[in-house]
Design a protein around this nucleic acid. Structure first.
Lengths: 218, 218
DNA sequence: GGCCCTATCTATAAAAG
DNA sequence: TCTTTTATAGATAGGGC
Protein backbone atom coordinates (compact mmCIF):
# COMPACT_ATOMS: atom_id res chain seq x y z
CA UNK A 1 0.00 0.00 0.00
CA UNK A 2 2.77 2.44 -0.74
CA UNK A 3 1.60 5.47 -2.64
CA UNK A 4 4.48 6.12 -5.01
CA UNK A 5 4.06 8.88 -7.48
CA UNK A 6 5.42 9.99 -10.76
CA UNK A 7 4.41 9.42 -14.28
CA UNK A 8 1.51 7.14 -14.89
CA UNK A 9 0.94 5.33 -18.07
CA UNK A 10 -2.19 3.86 -16.65
CA UNK A 11 -4.49 4.47 -13.80
CA UNK A 12 -3.61 1.11 -12.42
CA UNK A 13 -5.98 -0.94 -10.45
CA UNK A 14 -9.01 0.97 -9.32
CA UNK A 15 -11.27 0.34 -6.45
CA UNK A 16 -14.74 -0.84 -7.31
CA UNK A 17 -18.02 -1.08 -5.48
CA UNK A 18 -18.95 -4.47 -4.20
CA UNK A 19 -22.09 -4.81 -6.19
CA UNK A 20 -23.16 -6.32 -9.44
CA UNK A 21 -21.10 -4.88 -12.24
CA UNK A 22 -23.50 -3.07 -14.48
CA UNK A 23 -21.56 -3.20 -17.72
CA UNK A 24 -21.87 -6.67 -19.14
CA UNK A 25 -18.60 -6.55 -20.91
CA UNK A 26 -16.70 -5.49 -17.87
CA UNK A 27 -18.56 -8.07 -15.88
CA UNK A 28 -17.47 -10.81 -18.21
CA UNK A 29 -13.87 -9.73 -18.07
CA UNK A 30 -13.95 -9.51 -14.31
CA UNK A 31 -15.59 -12.86 -14.10
CA UNK A 32 -12.87 -14.45 -16.16
CA UNK A 33 -10.07 -12.95 -14.18
CA UNK A 34 -11.56 -13.57 -10.81
CA UNK A 35 -12.64 -17.06 -11.66
CA UNK A 36 -9.10 -17.89 -12.67
CA UNK A 37 -7.81 -16.28 -9.53
CA UNK A 38 -10.25 -18.21 -7.41
CA UNK A 39 -9.30 -21.53 -8.94
CA UNK A 40 -5.68 -20.74 -8.49
CA UNK A 41 -6.16 -19.90 -4.85
CA UNK A 42 -8.19 -23.02 -4.30
CA UNK A 43 -5.48 -25.08 -5.91
CA UNK A 44 -2.82 -23.44 -3.84
CA UNK A 45 -4.69 -24.00 -0.65
CA UNK A 46 -5.15 -27.66 -1.40
CA UNK A 47 -1.48 -28.00 -2.24
CA UNK A 48 -0.06 -25.97 0.59
CA UNK A 49 -2.26 -27.47 3.23
CA UNK A 50 -3.25 -30.74 1.65
CA UNK A 51 -6.88 -30.09 2.44
CA UNK A 52 -9.99 -31.29 0.68
CA UNK A 53 -11.69 -28.64 -1.36
CA UNK A 54 -14.52 -28.50 -3.84
CA UNK A 55 -15.33 -25.47 -5.93
CA UNK A 56 -18.07 -25.18 -8.49
CA UNK A 57 -18.76 -22.07 -10.50
CA UNK A 58 -21.36 -21.46 -13.14
CA UNK A 59 -20.44 -18.86 -15.69
CA UNK A 60 -22.81 -16.22 -16.88
CA UNK A 61 -23.37 -18.30 -19.95
CA UNK A 62 -24.28 -21.30 -17.90
CA UNK A 63 -21.07 -23.22 -18.22
CA UNK A 64 -19.84 -25.08 -15.22
CA UNK A 65 -16.32 -24.89 -13.91
CA UNK A 66 -15.19 -27.08 -11.13
CA UNK A 67 -12.23 -27.96 -9.06
CA UNK A 68 -11.91 -30.65 -6.50
CA UNK A 69 -9.21 -32.15 -4.41
CA UNK A 70 -9.11 -35.05 -4.49
CA UNK A 71 -12.31 -34.72 -6.52
CA UNK A 72 -15.59 -32.89 -6.36
CA UNK A 73 -17.69 -35.95 -5.74
CA UNK A 74 -15.90 -37.16 -2.69
CA UNK A 75 -15.95 -33.73 -1.14
CA UNK A 76 -19.65 -33.42 -1.68
CA UNK A 77 -20.16 -36.91 -0.40
CA UNK A 78 -18.20 -36.12 2.68
CA UNK A 79 -19.96 -32.85 3.09
CA UNK A 80 -23.33 -34.51 3.12
CA UNK A 81 -22.64 -37.57 5.10
CA UNK A 82 -19.25 -37.06 6.65
CA UNK A 83 -18.05 -40.34 5.28
CA UNK A 84 -14.79 -40.24 3.30
CA UNK A 85 -15.69 -42.95 0.87
CA UNK A 86 -18.42 -42.14 -1.59
CA UNK A 87 -20.69 -44.96 -2.51
CA UNK A 88 -20.04 -46.61 -5.82
CA UNK A 89 -22.40 -46.90 -8.70
CA UNK A 90 -25.36 -49.00 -8.12
CA UNK A 91 -27.70 -50.91 -10.29
CA UNK A 92 -31.37 -50.44 -10.70
CA UNK A 93 -31.87 -53.52 -8.69
CA UNK A 94 -30.04 -52.11 -5.77
CA UNK A 95 -31.96 -48.94 -6.14
CA UNK A 96 -35.21 -50.80 -6.09
CA UNK A 97 -34.24 -52.34 -2.83
CA UNK A 98 -33.29 -48.99 -1.51
CA UNK A 99 -36.68 -47.72 -2.44
CA UNK A 100 -38.22 -50.49 -0.42
CA UNK A 101 -36.00 -49.54 2.42
CA UNK A 102 -37.04 -45.98 2.15
CA UNK A 103 -40.62 -47.04 2.25
CA UNK A 104 -39.97 -49.04 5.34
CA UNK A 105 -38.12 -46.28 7.06
CA UNK A 106 -40.73 -43.77 6.26
CA UNK A 107 -43.34 -46.00 7.78
CA UNK A 108 -41.27 -46.29 10.89
CA UNK A 109 -40.84 -42.59 11.04
CA UNK A 110 -44.52 -41.97 10.67
CA UNK A 111 -45.22 -44.39 13.44
CA UNK A 112 -42.74 -42.84 15.73
CA UNK A 113 -43.99 -39.46 14.86
CA UNK A 114 -47.44 -40.50 15.83
CA UNK A 115 -46.12 -41.71 19.10
CA UNK A 116 -44.24 -38.54 19.61
CA UNK A 117 -47.33 -36.51 19.05
CA UNK A 118 -49.26 -38.49 21.56
CA UNK A 119 -46.58 -38.28 24.14
CA UNK A 120 -46.10 -34.66 23.54
CA UNK A 121 -49.75 -33.93 23.94
CA UNK A 122 -49.96 -35.87 27.11
CA UNK A 123 -46.85 -34.13 28.31
CA UNK A 124 -48.44 -30.79 27.74
CA UNK A 125 -51.60 -31.80 29.51
CA UNK A 126 -49.64 -32.97 32.42
CA UNK A 127 -47.64 -29.83 32.45
CA UNK A 128 -50.78 -27.79 32.48
CA UNK A 129 -52.13 -29.91 35.26
CA UNK A 130 -48.97 -29.38 37.18
CA UNK A 131 -49.24 -25.68 36.77
CA UNK A 132 -52.59 -25.59 38.46
CA UNK A 133 -51.87 -28.30 40.87
CA UNK A 134 -51.49 -27.40 44.48
CA UNK A 135 -50.43 -30.81 45.65
CA UNK A 136 -46.78 -31.43 45.50
CA UNK A 137 -47.18 -35.14 45.82
CA UNK A 138 -49.43 -35.46 42.80
CA UNK A 139 -47.30 -33.18 40.76
CA UNK A 140 -44.31 -35.21 41.60
CA UNK A 141 -45.89 -38.50 40.68
CA UNK A 142 -47.10 -37.31 37.33
CA UNK A 143 -43.82 -35.76 36.56
CA UNK A 144 -41.98 -38.92 37.32
CA UNK A 145 -44.34 -41.00 35.26
CA UNK A 146 -43.81 -38.93 32.20
CA UNK A 147 -40.13 -38.99 32.67
CA UNK A 148 -40.10 -42.75 32.42
CA UNK A 149 -42.32 -42.76 29.41
CA UNK A 150 -39.94 -40.45 27.71
CA UNK A 151 -37.08 -42.70 28.55
CA UNK A 152 -38.74 -45.49 26.65
CA UNK A 153 -39.47 -43.23 23.76
CA UNK A 154 -35.88 -42.27 23.54
CA UNK A 155 -34.86 -45.85 23.25
CA UNK A 156 -37.29 -46.43 20.44
CA UNK A 157 -35.98 -43.49 18.57
CA UNK A 158 -32.49 -44.73 18.95
CA UNK A 159 -33.43 -47.98 17.34
CA UNK A 160 -34.94 -46.12 14.46
CA UNK A 161 -31.82 -44.15 14.03
CA UNK A 162 -29.81 -47.29 13.91
CA UNK A 163 -32.01 -48.63 11.15
CA UNK A 164 -31.58 -45.60 9.04
CA UNK A 165 -27.90 -45.71 9.66
CA UNK A 166 -27.81 -49.20 8.27
CA UNK A 167 -29.85 -48.22 5.27
CA UNK A 168 -27.69 -45.34 4.32
CA UNK A 169 -24.48 -47.20 4.76
CA UNK A 170 -25.74 -50.32 3.10
CA UNK A 171 -23.33 -51.98 0.71
CA UNK A 172 -24.21 -52.03 -2.95
CA UNK A 173 -26.16 -55.08 -3.91
CA UNK A 174 -24.69 -55.50 -7.31
CA UNK A 175 -23.45 -53.41 -10.16
CA UNK A 176 -24.57 -54.03 -13.68
CA UNK A 177 -23.79 -50.60 -14.97
CA UNK A 178 -20.74 -49.66 -16.85
CA UNK A 179 -18.94 -47.04 -14.86
CA UNK A 180 -16.45 -44.50 -15.90
CA UNK A 181 -13.18 -44.40 -14.06
CA UNK A 182 -13.06 -42.08 -11.10
CA UNK A 183 -11.04 -38.94 -11.55
CA UNK A 184 -8.30 -37.87 -9.37
CA UNK A 185 -7.76 -34.19 -9.05
CA UNK A 186 -9.91 -32.22 -11.41
CA UNK A 187 -8.38 -29.43 -13.28
CA UNK A 188 -10.22 -26.19 -13.24
CA UNK A 189 -12.14 -25.64 -16.38
CA UNK A 190 -15.34 -26.49 -18.10
CA UNK A 191 -16.37 -29.48 -16.17
CA UNK A 192 -17.94 -32.61 -17.34
CA UNK A 193 -20.29 -34.11 -14.88
CA UNK A 194 -18.58 -36.25 -12.39
CA UNK A 195 -20.37 -39.53 -12.47
CA UNK A 196 -20.89 -39.69 -8.81
CA UNK A 197 -23.44 -42.04 -7.57
CA UNK A 198 -24.22 -41.75 -3.97
CA UNK A 199 -26.42 -44.43 -2.65
CA UNK A 200 -28.97 -44.18 -5.32
CA UNK A 201 -32.49 -44.87 -4.50
CA UNK A 202 -35.14 -46.09 -6.73
CA UNK A 203 -35.87 -47.15 -10.25
CA UNK A 204 -38.35 -49.88 -10.37
CA UNK A 205 -37.60 -53.10 -12.01
CA UNK A 206 -39.62 -56.20 -11.93
CA UNK A 207 -38.50 -59.21 -10.05
CA UNK A 208 -37.84 -58.59 -6.46
CA UNK A 209 -35.09 -60.29 -4.63
CA UNK A 210 -36.65 -63.22 -2.81
CA UNK A 211 -34.91 -62.54 0.43
CA UNK A 212 -34.29 -59.23 2.04
CA UNK A 213 -30.65 -58.72 2.76
CA UNK A 214 -29.51 -58.69 6.30
CA UNK A 215 -29.08 -55.02 6.45
CA UNK A 216 -32.66 -54.57 5.46
CA UNK A 217 -34.05 -56.28 8.48
CA UNK A 218 -35.67 -53.88 10.80
CA UNK B 1 8.34 -1.06 -3.27
CA UNK B 2 9.56 1.62 -0.97
CA UNK B 3 12.45 0.35 1.11
CA UNK B 4 11.35 1.11 4.62
CA UNK B 5 13.60 2.72 7.09
CA UNK B 6 15.80 1.21 9.69
CA UNK B 7 14.21 -1.35 11.86
CA UNK B 8 11.84 -3.95 10.59
CA UNK B 9 9.42 -5.61 12.85
CA UNK B 10 8.73 -8.14 10.19
CA UNK B 11 10.19 -9.38 7.00
CA UNK B 12 6.89 -8.92 5.33
CA UNK B 13 5.31 -11.34 3.00
CA UNK B 14 7.74 -13.90 1.68
CA UNK B 15 7.57 -16.09 -1.29
CA UNK B 16 6.92 -19.71 -0.52
CA UNK B 17 7.21 -22.93 -2.43
CA UNK B 18 4.03 -24.32 -3.79
CA UNK B 19 4.15 -27.54 -1.89
CA UNK B 20 2.79 -28.92 1.30
CA UNK B 21 3.85 -26.75 4.17
CA UNK B 22 6.01 -28.93 6.35
CA UNK B 23 5.52 -27.19 9.65
CA UNK B 24 2.12 -28.14 10.92
CA UNK B 25 1.69 -25.01 12.89
CA UNK B 26 2.46 -22.79 9.99
CA UNK B 27 0.21 -24.94 7.85
CA UNK B 28 -2.69 -24.42 10.18
CA UNK B 29 -2.21 -20.70 10.25
CA UNK B 30 -1.87 -20.51 6.52
CA UNK B 31 -4.95 -22.61 6.13
CA UNK B 32 -7.00 -20.29 8.25
CA UNK B 33 -5.86 -17.22 6.44
CA UNK B 34 -6.17 -18.58 2.97
CA UNK B 35 -9.48 -20.17 3.64
CA UNK B 36 -10.79 -16.82 4.78
CA UNK B 37 -9.34 -15.21 1.69
CA UNK B 38 -10.87 -17.82 -0.54
CA UNK B 39 -14.30 -17.38 0.95
CA UNK B 40 -14.01 -13.66 0.59
CA UNK B 41 -13.09 -13.94 -3.05
CA UNK B 42 -15.86 -16.39 -3.71
CA UNK B 43 -18.32 -14.02 -2.12
CA UNK B 44 -17.03 -11.12 -4.13
CA UNK B 45 -17.26 -13.02 -7.36
CA UNK B 46 -20.82 -14.03 -6.69
CA UNK B 47 -21.70 -10.45 -5.87
CA UNK B 48 -19.82 -8.71 -8.63
CA UNK B 49 -20.90 -11.08 -11.35
CA UNK B 50 -24.02 -12.56 -9.89
CA UNK B 51 -22.83 -16.05 -10.59
CA UNK B 52 -23.64 -19.26 -8.84
CA UNK B 53 -20.83 -20.61 -6.74
CA UNK B 54 -20.38 -23.40 -4.27
CA UNK B 55 -17.31 -23.85 -2.16
CA UNK B 56 -16.67 -26.56 0.37
CA UNK B 57 -13.50 -26.87 2.39
CA UNK B 58 -12.50 -29.34 5.04
CA UNK B 59 -10.04 -28.15 7.61
CA UNK B 60 -7.10 -30.21 8.70
CA UNK B 61 -9.04 -31.04 11.80
CA UNK B 62 -11.95 -32.32 9.78
CA UNK B 63 -14.29 -29.40 10.18
CA UNK B 64 -16.31 -28.42 7.15
CA UNK B 65 -16.65 -24.90 5.86
CA UNK B 66 -18.99 -24.04 3.07
CA UNK B 67 -20.20 -21.19 0.99
CA UNK B 68 -22.90 -21.20 -1.61
CA UNK B 69 -24.72 -18.70 -3.73
CA UNK B 70 -27.60 -19.01 -3.71
CA UNK B 71 -26.90 -22.09 -1.63
CA UNK B 72 -24.66 -25.12 -1.73
CA UNK B 73 -27.41 -27.62 -2.39
CA UNK B 74 -28.81 -25.95 -5.45
CA UNK B 75 -25.38 -25.53 -6.99
CA UNK B 76 -24.57 -29.14 -6.44
CA UNK B 77 -27.96 -30.12 -7.73
CA UNK B 78 -27.43 -28.11 -10.86
CA UNK B 79 -23.94 -29.46 -11.23
CA UNK B 80 -25.07 -33.04 -11.18
CA UNK B 81 -28.19 -32.43 -13.16
CA UNK B 82 -26.40 -30.85 -16.05
CA UNK B 83 -27.24 -32.25 -19.45
CA UNK B 84 -24.63 -34.95 -20.01
CA UNK B 85 -26.97 -37.86 -19.74
CA UNK B 86 -30.58 -37.13 -20.61
CA UNK B 87 -31.61 -40.26 -18.84
CA UNK B 88 -34.89 -41.75 -19.99
CA UNK B 89 -37.37 -42.21 -17.24
CA UNK B 90 -35.69 -41.32 -14.02
CA UNK B 91 -32.64 -39.20 -13.98
CA UNK B 92 -29.89 -40.84 -12.07
CA UNK B 93 -28.68 -37.41 -11.22
CA UNK B 94 -31.83 -36.54 -9.43
CA UNK B 95 -31.54 -39.70 -7.44
CA UNK B 96 -27.96 -38.88 -6.73
CA UNK B 97 -28.87 -35.60 -5.26
CA UNK B 98 -31.64 -37.07 -3.24
CA UNK B 99 -29.29 -39.72 -2.04
CA UNK B 100 -26.81 -37.10 -0.98
CA UNK B 101 -29.57 -35.43 0.93
CA UNK B 102 -30.43 -38.72 2.54
CA UNK B 103 -26.91 -38.93 3.75
CA UNK B 104 -27.24 -35.51 5.15
CA UNK B 105 -30.37 -36.51 6.96
CA UNK B 106 -28.57 -39.47 8.33
CA UNK B 107 -25.93 -37.16 9.67
CA UNK B 108 -28.57 -35.15 11.38
CA UNK B 109 -30.02 -38.26 12.88
CA UNK B 110 -26.65 -39.23 14.18
CA UNK B 111 -26.34 -35.93 15.87
CA UNK B 112 -29.73 -36.19 17.42
CA UNK B 113 -28.91 -39.64 18.52
CA UNK B 114 -25.86 -38.30 20.19
CA UNK B 115 -28.02 -35.84 21.98
CA UNK B 116 -30.38 -38.58 22.98
CA UNK B 117 -27.58 -40.60 24.40
CA UNK B 118 -26.41 -37.74 26.47
CA UNK B 119 -29.83 -36.98 27.77
CA UNK B 120 -30.47 -40.59 28.44
CA UNK B 121 -27.32 -40.99 30.39
CA UNK B 122 -28.04 -37.96 32.40
CA UNK B 123 -31.52 -39.22 32.94
CA UNK B 124 -30.25 -42.47 34.32
CA UNK B 125 -27.84 -40.75 36.59
CA UNK B 126 -30.54 -38.57 37.91
CA UNK B 127 -32.78 -41.52 38.37
CA UNK B 128 -30.16 -43.31 40.34
CA UNK B 129 -29.65 -40.25 42.41
CA UNK B 130 -33.34 -40.05 43.02
CA UNK B 131 -33.49 -43.61 44.17
CA UNK B 132 -31.05 -42.98 46.92
CA UNK B 133 -32.19 -39.50 47.61
CA UNK B 134 -34.02 -38.80 50.79
CA UNK B 135 -34.94 -35.27 49.95
CA UNK B 136 -38.15 -34.94 48.08
CA UNK B 137 -37.55 -31.36 47.13
CA UNK B 138 -34.31 -32.05 45.35
CA UNK B 139 -35.70 -35.07 43.66
CA UNK B 140 -38.58 -33.13 42.38
CA UNK B 141 -36.49 -30.36 40.98
CA UNK B 142 -34.18 -32.62 39.09
CA UNK B 143 -37.02 -34.62 37.71
CA UNK B 144 -38.80 -31.57 36.44
CA UNK B 145 -35.72 -30.24 34.79
CA UNK B 146 -35.17 -33.36 32.81
CA UNK B 147 -38.77 -33.48 31.83
CA UNK B 148 -38.55 -30.11 30.17
CA UNK B 149 -35.36 -30.97 28.40
CA UNK B 150 -37.01 -34.00 26.97
CA UNK B 151 -39.93 -31.97 25.78
CA UNK B 152 -37.61 -29.85 23.73
CA UNK B 153 -35.85 -32.84 22.38
CA UNK B 154 -39.12 -34.29 21.23
CA UNK B 155 -39.86 -31.18 19.27
CA UNK B 156 -36.52 -31.30 17.56
CA UNK B 157 -37.06 -34.88 16.57
CA UNK B 158 -40.42 -34.06 15.16
CA UNK B 159 -38.94 -31.45 12.95
CA UNK B 160 -36.38 -33.88 11.74
CA UNK B 161 -39.12 -36.36 10.97
CA UNK B 162 -40.84 -33.76 8.87
CA UNK B 163 -37.69 -33.07 6.92
CA UNK B 164 -37.31 -36.69 6.09
CA UNK B 165 -40.92 -36.94 5.15
CA UNK B 166 -40.54 -34.09 2.73
CA UNK B 167 -37.34 -35.47 1.34
CA UNK B 168 -38.78 -38.84 0.70
CA UNK B 169 -41.84 -37.44 -0.94
CA UNK B 170 -39.98 -34.82 -2.88
CA UNK B 171 -40.63 -34.61 -6.61
CA UNK B 172 -37.71 -35.25 -8.96
CA UNK B 173 -35.00 -32.67 -9.02
CA UNK B 174 -34.49 -32.73 -12.72
CA UNK B 175 -35.49 -29.38 -14.10
CA UNK B 176 -32.42 -27.33 -14.84
CA UNK B 177 -33.69 -23.84 -14.92
CA UNK B 178 -31.68 -21.21 -16.65
CA UNK B 179 -32.77 -18.20 -14.72
CA UNK B 180 -33.64 -17.83 -11.14
CA UNK B 181 -34.11 -15.01 -8.72
CA UNK B 182 -31.01 -14.12 -6.77
CA UNK B 183 -31.27 -15.52 -3.35
CA UNK B 184 -29.58 -14.74 -0.16
CA UNK B 185 -26.06 -15.89 0.13
CA UNK B 186 -24.92 -18.36 2.66
CA UNK B 187 -22.33 -17.11 4.98
CA UNK B 188 -19.11 -18.98 5.06
CA UNK B 189 -18.48 -20.67 8.27
CA UNK B 190 -17.91 -23.90 10.04
CA UNK B 191 -20.27 -26.35 8.54
CA UNK B 192 -18.93 -29.45 10.06
CA UNK B 193 -20.63 -31.00 12.96
CA UNK B 194 -24.16 -29.92 12.75
CA UNK B 195 -23.93 -26.77 10.81
CA UNK B 196 -26.05 -27.89 7.94
CA UNK B 197 -29.24 -26.04 7.73
CA UNK B 198 -32.00 -28.40 8.56
CA UNK B 199 -34.53 -26.03 7.21
CA UNK B 200 -33.25 -26.53 3.73
CA UNK B 201 -33.02 -30.25 3.73
CA UNK B 202 -35.23 -31.86 1.22
CA UNK B 203 -36.37 -28.62 -0.17
CA UNK B 204 -37.29 -28.84 -3.74
CA UNK B 205 -37.35 -25.66 -5.66
CA UNK B 206 -37.14 -26.42 -9.30
CA UNK B 207 -39.85 -27.48 -11.63
CA UNK B 208 -41.63 -29.99 -9.62
CA UNK B 209 -43.45 -32.77 -11.22
CA UNK B 210 -46.70 -33.21 -9.38
CA UNK B 211 -46.18 -36.92 -9.12
CA UNK B 212 -43.37 -38.63 -7.35
CA UNK B 213 -41.62 -41.33 -9.30
CA UNK B 214 -42.85 -44.83 -8.76
CA UNK B 215 -39.76 -45.98 -7.07
CA UNK B 216 -40.18 -43.38 -4.48
CA UNK B 217 -43.81 -43.80 -3.72
CA UNK B 218 -44.23 -44.59 -0.13
C1' DG C 1 -1.24 -28.12 29.23
C1' DG C 2 -2.67 -29.51 24.42
C1' DC C 3 -5.11 -28.95 20.27
C1' DC C 4 -7.15 -26.21 16.83
C1' DC C 5 -8.37 -22.09 15.22
C1' DT C 6 -8.32 -16.94 14.79
C1' DA C 7 -6.52 -12.04 15.30
C1' DT C 8 -2.91 -8.50 14.76
C1' DC C 9 0.98 -6.36 12.73
C1' DT C 10 4.44 -5.33 9.02
C1' DA C 11 6.43 -5.62 4.71
C1' DT C 12 6.03 -7.56 0.48
C1' DA C 13 4.11 -10.74 -3.25
C1' DA C 14 0.32 -11.12 -6.16
C1' DA C 15 -4.24 -9.92 -8.06
C1' DA C 16 -6.89 -7.25 -10.97
C1' DG C 17 -8.95 -2.67 -12.91
C1' DT D 1 0.41 -3.61 -19.83
C1' DC D 2 1.13 -1.13 -15.64
C1' DT D 3 -0.07 0.69 -11.35
C1' DT D 4 -2.76 0.41 -7.37
C1' DT D 5 -5.21 -2.40 -4.30
C1' DT D 6 -5.27 -6.77 -1.87
C1' DA D 7 -3.82 -10.90 -0.01
C1' DT D 8 -0.86 -12.96 2.96
C1' DA D 9 4.05 -14.96 4.94
C1' DG D 10 6.05 -14.75 9.15
C1' DA D 11 5.92 -14.15 13.98
C1' DT D 12 3.26 -14.06 17.88
C1' DA D 13 -0.68 -13.77 20.99
C1' DG D 14 -5.30 -14.88 22.29
C1' DG D 15 -9.37 -17.86 22.68
C1' DG D 16 -12.40 -21.86 23.16
C1' DC D 17 -12.75 -26.57 24.37
Amino acid sequence: MAPPQGKKKSLGRRKIDMKLIADENARTVTFSKRRAGLFKKATELSVLCGTQIALIIFSLGGRAYSFGHPDVESIIGRFFNRVPIPTPQESGHAMRIRAAMLHEIKGQLDEKSEELNTKKKRGKEIEAALESSSYQTTEERLDRLNFHQLQKLKEKLEKLREQIHRLVNAPPVNADDAVEPPNSTNAAGPAGTGELDLANVGRNEVGASPVPPDWLKL
